[in-house]
């Protein structure tokens, strides 16, 4: 009996030390709320991931995640503010990786999407789509292309900011089909969607998930991908329509300012893995018409690197 309780005491003391030592490390971080910078307006597709992440982080990360929307300039406003933040893990950025990468490539900025930040991981993927309002005369993507060919440069199209992946994908679509149209940038997906809905522009490129809840107002003509979207599968893909396009999408990634401590990154990375599996996360994204897609830090960086080599020739082409 004595021995038993002795063993128990030892083991509990041991487990306590192990427990406290891991806690001690983790309890250094996070000690206060973590700001998650979203460089887009609330209500857009990227924002939905941040809100879901913040809600699902409860119980995994022992501090609240506070979503801070810093919209503007195709996501660079937020990126720049994140870069300027102290690298202590209390400011991280959740961004649309494709848009972010493109912004850094097309704009005069010192930010290098692959080098300026520490990669934490990927939690999802966003696809853009060709959308018109429901009372638009264009019933199919081909209608739109024909109309644009009949009267060049008269059509207007909306997107969520130049340098964003919606914009580049849109330009890619126009170039691939040999048509021209004037773009009108809006600050974020929500305002761009409203502009399409109210026929301020003739069409637009916005996230496919933005159709959710607006099925009566908007008509999705095509998804900018080789396959249909998992969630919104009523809209055909460009590939199945045999319409040329640029295969540009956007992984939803999390970045931290350069020189954020390694153990903080690892902590966040493993937390992301846990969080993205949580039913609440899946459910929240599902309500918004998206789905989780986790990748660890290294793979995230590789995905972006591959995308960069795919995009560069397209960008060169667009310049011509």
């Amino acid at each position: 009996m004595i021995r038993k309780s002795f063993v128990f005491a030892i083991s509990s003391a041991l487990s306590l030390t192990i427990f406290t030592s891991t806690i001690a490390k983790a309890s250094d971080y996070p000690r206060r709320s973590i700001n998650v910078v979203v460089p887009y307006k609330a209500g857009g597709g990227t924002d939905a991931y941040a809100r879901a992440l913040a809600a699902a982080a409860k119980g995994t990360i022992n501090a609240p995640l506070v979503v801070v929307n810093k919209p503007g300039a195709g996501g660079l406003n937020g990126a720049q503010s994140t870069l300027g933040a102290r690298p202590d893990g209390y400011t991280i950025m959740l961004t649309s990786g494709g848009s972010f990468l493109l912004s850094t490539l097309t704009r005069n900025t010192k930010i290098d999407a692959l080098k300026s930040f520490e990669f934490v991981g990927q939690i999802g993927q966003l696809k853009t789509s060709l959308i018109v309002s429901n009372d638009s005369p264009y019933k199919t993507a081909q209608d739109l292309i024909n109309a644009a060919k009949d009267s060049p440069s008269t059509l207007r199209w909306a997107h969520s900011g130049r340098g964003g992946f919606h914009y580049i994908a849109g330009l890619g679509f126009l170039a691939a089909n040999g048509i021209e149209a004037q773009d009108v940038p809006f600050k974020g997906g929500g305002p761009a969607r409203a502009a399409i809905m109210s026929n301020q522009t003739d069409f637009g490129f916005i996230g496919i998930q933005q159709l959710k809840g607006f099925e009566e107002q908007l008509r999705g003509l095509a998804v900018n991908a080789s396959t249909r979207d998992q969630k919104v599968n009523s809209v055909p893909s460009f590939k199945e329509l045999n319409i040329p396009y640029s295969n540009i999408s956007s992984p939803v990634i999390i970045l931290a300012p350069k020189n954020t401590p390694k153990d903080v990154i690892t902590y966040l990375e493993s937390s992301l893995k846990t969080i993205t599996k949580k039913p609440i996360f899946v459910e929240m994204l599902s309500k918004r018409g998206t789905a989780p897609a986790y990748l660890p830090a290294e793979d995230t960086q590789n995905v972006l690197m591959e995308m960069k080599s795919d995009i560069l020739p397209i960008l060169e082409n667009l310049k011509k």
């Binding site: 307006k41 609330a42 209500g43 924002d47 939905a48 809100r51 879901a52 913040a54 809600a55 979503v67 929307n69 929500g190 305002p191 969607r193 409203a194 809905m197 959710k212 809840g213 607006f214 009566e216 107002q217 459910e283 929240m284 309500k287 918004r288």
Partner: peptide, 28 residues
């Protein structure tokens, strides 16, 4: 009804709607 937040407060309220899975939009 349109998912356009008119102010910072609006943007945050929009977040609350979304967090609780209330689909903002014309069908709300």
């Amino acid at each position: 009804t349109l998912g356009i937040p008119g102010s910072t407060i609006g943007a945050i309220l929009l977040g609350v709607f979304l967090i609780h899975g209330i689909q903002v939009g014309p069908t709300l």
